[in-house]
Design a protein around this nucleic acid. Structure first.
Lengths: 210, 210
DNA sequence: CCATAAGTCAAACGTTTGTTTTAATCGCAC
DNA sequence: GTGCGATTAAAACAAACGTTTGACTTATGG
């Protein structure tokens, strides 16, 4: 028997469609049609459309967040053991590298990244609160580590610079076709490592500005 | 006679609701009810919901874009007249200052800024294409000026750094209550000038990174 | 082989959506 | 005042939405 192959297919297809077309613009009928399952399967397996998108976030964001938290803790511990402050680059890499490497880690991961890039500005309160609840602890730890890395900055300044960095990072998680018109001769598709380098160069300089 | 007071009220109310709750989550019934006008007035005055949001963009974004274009041209001309390259700071300020000062320039401007902060990631193809069509020339000119300011960088690098900057700027155009959970003691509400300074410090450093 | 539970299916539910229709109302030149 | 175009009002439209229902099929343990 299937052992709920249906459930997996729903997660995969919904992730893709929610990412490409948005949560509200994607009806359950489109999702179930593309997945080749019955409309009622969403209610049966998840309970509601909102529970479906929550399951999508849960499946991908939980392990990703655990890795980011672990790396941030490691940065803090290593600096503490060496009797120094963590650096802004260490903190940024602890957040950015898992995020962009994750992009190529699974077939649908790219779509999921697009989804969280959009979740930051998601109009729907339910979806946004799901995301904020899951990202909250990572954001808070990141903030603290950055405050340690830049003790001369006010917490206000660190907070805003972190927000700027989040905004910059979110521009890397988009599907290429959703970007604004690009000038001729520009590479939209970058390897994760090149993208990471570009981001880190830019953000470390921004963080270390006086 | 009203001389289309209805039309203005629709623009104002729709701008606010689209910004706060998103384009798709805001029905014309909510808009017309809050504006105290009849539902059919949208069809009569604008033709459709999409034409309404386009009128909203047109009203605010056209003068804002003209100012940004003008300032970018000025930066370029001043540098040319002095026989030097424009600086990254000049280019960034030409874009950022009109944007954030605009926030306090009119009662509903703050809502509109929230709307364009969201338009970058808007799921709806129609809305996103309206926005991209209007912002395209500004983006292109900004890109060229930045290429002149950083001639040692590849166009690829400049393009991505400009994207990062756009992402960072968009984090400043949000309504406070839509931000992720903020640590205690953080000022969410900044004056336009303070916000500009923070942004420019951060982004100039990022742009000038090697 | 049967009983039970899990899973699937087509159909329908009640809302809400953007838009259209038809009639009534208003302001103003003539 | 009369007539006319511009505007508003109330009602209805078909389509799409998320969800629920109840019958049907399938797999599994005893």
């Amino acid at each position: 028997m299937d052992k709920s192959d249906t459930k997996q297919r729903l997660l995969d297809v919904a992730e893709k469609l929610f990412a490409s077309n948005g949560y509200h613009c994607t009806s359950l009928r489109k999702v179930t049609a593309k997945a080749g399952v019955n409309l009622a399967a969403v209610s049966y397996h998840f309970g509601s459309k909102e529970a479906l998108v929550e399951a999508i976030f849960e499946r991908r964001l939980r392990p990703l967040n655990e890795e980011r938290m672990g790396r941030l803790e490691t940065v803090r511990a290593a600096a503490g053991a060496a009797g120094r402050k963590p650096t802004a680059e260490e903190a940024l890499r602890a957040f950015i590298e898992p995020t962009l490497r994750f992009r190529d880690s699974a077939p649908g991961a790219r779509y999921f990244l697009h989804l969280i890039g959009r979740a930051l500005t998601e109009p729907d309160d339910a979806v946004r609160s799901i995301f904020f609840r899951m990202i909250g602890p990572v954001f808070a730890l990141m903030f603290e580590v950055l405050c340690e890395a830049r003790p001369n900055l006010s917490r206000n300044q660190v907070f805003w610079r972190l927000n700027f960095a989040i905004g910059a990072i979110s521009r890397c998680t988009f599907l290429p076709e959703k970007l604004p018109v690009v000038p001729a001769g520009i590479e939209i598709e970058l390897s994760a490592d090149r993208q990471i380098d570009m981001l880190v160069d830019f953000l470390v300089a921004g963080m270390e500005a006086p």
